[in-house]
Each structure stands twice: as structure tokens, then as C-alpha cells.
Write a protein that binds this DNA or RNA. Structure first.
Lengths: 196, 196
DNA sequence: GCAAAATTTGCACACTATGCAAGTTGAACG
DNA sequence: CGTTCAACTTGCATAGTGTGCAAATTTTGC
């Protein structure tokens, strides 16, 4: 796929997402139909389904690729691990922007609409798997199970930080620091006791 | 709600799930409609939707309550933590049965149908939150963030163990031991280095 | 500029899902 | 046991979702 077609596809995908978000903010999630989104985006409803599987997918937009910035943020880091994680998630998941207001709208929708919550979980899982592949690169000698568990532990802590950030007045960086500290505080509960 | 009505409701929910699983195994997921499931379960399609939101929910059945056995398995344990986790998940999530064959069917469907995968993730999340409430009970003085992170770490390790169990010839107990060992092996990677 | 490939669109239609009212069943009470 | 009421099921209508298919349009390569 070449220049104009590729660019056109990206722009249309983005147009659809913007139309979805705008209509949903105006009319409420349940009142917005795929037909309305399509018209607002300037395409036919039939074409809508060439881009997105359903309404909530349109609302969330496309899964971001791992950018060079996000890769570098994690791979080049020599520690501490949570600094790497913060920078990776900042560039990748938040798209290097402080999109707090937009994300707050989104969290509201999440809490009210199970379909969106489901898709959010799927997105999270997909991003966790992306991180997993990065970690496999960073630690080429670790077994697969360890990579998977490490990715899950790190990313779930990161998501908890983002959620905390959205609910309090703290900075994103401080939220990551706090979540990480909580994780480290949990470790003694996981370690073998003297009884073992 | 009293005796017969309550029992009737449970049985009908179960009938629907069984019908869904049976039809899907026979005809393939995409070929089975909510109408077909309803007829096979002996109810109208309209009633189907009084029980389940959609086809994949019917396939997965209802979310199990935390049984006394599962509670006891986690709350009474004095360690090691992964023994508690194993016993809790055995009683709660696997329903105290070795349902390996049925779960293998399910894993196949998971990998082929995004809607089922999404619902699986939602189920996982719901069970994680159930574990979280149990942990809050077991450790009443821990802050909320720690409880949340601890629940995520433990349950994700448990899910990884179950997935491993389904893919290898190992026993479920050994799979939990291995996954837990992998988790402990990850901890040094998370701890602060001397540079901090 | 032309031919081929890629993409959009209109259309038909099956399936999903919900509101509503009529019919049926279970529970409570005398 | 009979009656009344609440809970549940069902039929029906209908809007929205989602897909296959072929014609129309746009982009690409030469």
C-alpha cells in the first residue's frame, strides 16, 4: 500500500474516531448509531465496517504501533525499571500527550457501558503483549513464562498508576512512583516464609 | 425470590449454557444463532435475553459466586501464598473439577473468536476483583492500591499457570508451582538497583 | 492515457437486541 | 382449596448491527 492510499486510510480511521467521540459526547453513547457516525465522518455505513468492527472500536480508535520513542524508552533504560515503564507508557499509551480531559470522558464511559469496558480490557491485553515482546528483546535469555509474568506485573502496575492519576490531583510521574512503591511493598507478602 | 423460582432460574441458565456449548461444538461458533440456542434450551429467544446479554455470555455461563470453600482456601492459609492461590482458584475458578477437556475446547474458541476472548478477559477481571475483596479481608490494614496490585499479581500468575496446564502434560499443582517460581524469579528485576 | 488493482458504495437481508402487552406460573393468604 | 398479586415467559414489532456481493469510483503502475 502506497502514499495516498495509506494516508487516506489513516485519516479516515481518525475521522471516524473523532466523529464517534464528538457525537457520543453530544448525544450520549446509547443514542449514537454506526449510521450517524458514518454520516458525520463522510463515509457510508458499509465502509464504516471496513474500518472498525463496531461502535466501541471506533470510539477507541486504532491500536497504536510501538513507536521508536516507546521502544527506546524501554530498551535503552538501565533502570530503575519503573522509570523505563513510565516513559514507555507515556510515549506509547498516552501518545506523549497530557490527554487528561479526554481520558476522563473515557473513564466515565467505561464505568457506564460494559461493551466499552470489555474493549478497554482487550486493549490493555494487547498492549501488555506488546510490552512482552519488548521485554523478550531486552532480556533475550529469560524463559517465556518469566517474560509474560514480568510484562503483566509491570503493565498492571502502570495501569493502576494511570487510573490513580486520573482520579487525583497528583502528577502522572508521581502516580507511577506511588504505584511502583506499592508494588515493592507487596513483594514481602509473596516471598517464601520461613515455614517453607 | 424463593425456592422453585430461584431453582428454576438457575437450571434454565445452566440449560442455556449447555445448549450453547453443545451446538457450538457441533456446528461451529459462527453457525450457531441465539435463536437456535433458545430452541435447544426449550425457551423463547425473547427469554434468552432475560438470562444472557449475548451468545458468548451464554457460552461462558454465569459468574460463579465465591464459595465458602474458595473463601476458606484463601483466608485460612498461613502460606505459602501460592498454595492459598492454587486452592482458591481450584475451588472457585475451576469449580473443584478437572475440566481439562472442556477447557481445551474453550481455549480453541478463545483463540478464534475475538468476542469470546473479550468476554474471557472481562471474566478474568471480575474474578480478580473478587480476589481483591478477599485479600482486603485477609489484610485489613493494607492500603487499597496495594491490595489491588497484589490481587493482580497473584491472579495473573494463576491464569498463566492454568494456561500452561492446558498446554502441557504437567499437573495443575505443578503448573502453579512453576508459575509461582517464575514470578519469584522476576522479583530481582523489579527491585531497586544500587544506582537508585 | 489506459488497464489493473484497491477501495467505496448501494442493496438485500439475516441476525441481534429491546420495548411492550398479553398470557402463564408461583407465592402468599384466608 | 380458591383467589389475588407478583414474577416470569412469550409473541410481536421494529430499529440497529453486520456481512456478502456486485457495480461504481479512485489510485497506482507503466
Amino acid at each position: 500500500m502506497t502514499g495516498l492510499r495509506s494516508r487516506r486510510r489513516s485519516e479516515t480511521a481518525k475521522d471516524i474516531q473523532r466523529a464517534a467521540l464528538s457525537l457520543i459526547q453530544r448525544d450520549g453513547y446509547d443514542a449514537v448509531t454506526t449510521d450517524a457516525i458514518s454520516r458525520a465522518a463522510g463515509i457510508s455505513q458499509r465502509t464504516f465496517f471496513n474500518y472498525y468492527a463496531n461502535k466501541e472500536s471506533a470510539l477507541m480508535g486504532e491500536l497504536p504501533e510501538i513507536s521508536e520513542q516507546a521502544r527506546a524508552a524501554l530498551l535503552s533504560g538501565e533502570g530503575p525499571a519503573h522509570r523505563d515503564l513510565y516513559r514507555m507508557m507515556y510515549f506509547h499509551t498516552l501518545g506523549a500527550m497530557d490527554k487528561r480531559e479526554e481520558l476522563l470522558v473515557f473513564v466515565c464511559l467505561l464505568n457506564e457501558h460494559p461493551q466499552i469496558f470489555q474493549l478497554y480490557l482487550t486493549r490493555r491485553e494487547q498492549i501488555n503483549r506488546q510490552l512482552e515482546s519488548l521485554l523478550a528483546e531486552k532480556f533475550p535469555d529469560l524463559p517465556e513464562m518469566m517474560i509474560k509474568i514480568l510484562a503483566d506485573v509491570m503493565l498492571n502496575t502502570g495501569w493502576a498508576a494511570i487510573r490513580c492519576w486520573l482520579q487525583t490531583d497528583t502528577t502522572l510521574e508521581a502516580a507511577f512512583d506511588n504505584a511502583w512503591a506499592s508494588l515493592l511493598d507487596c513483594l514481602p507478602l509473596l516471598l517464601p516464609t520461613t515455614q517453607e
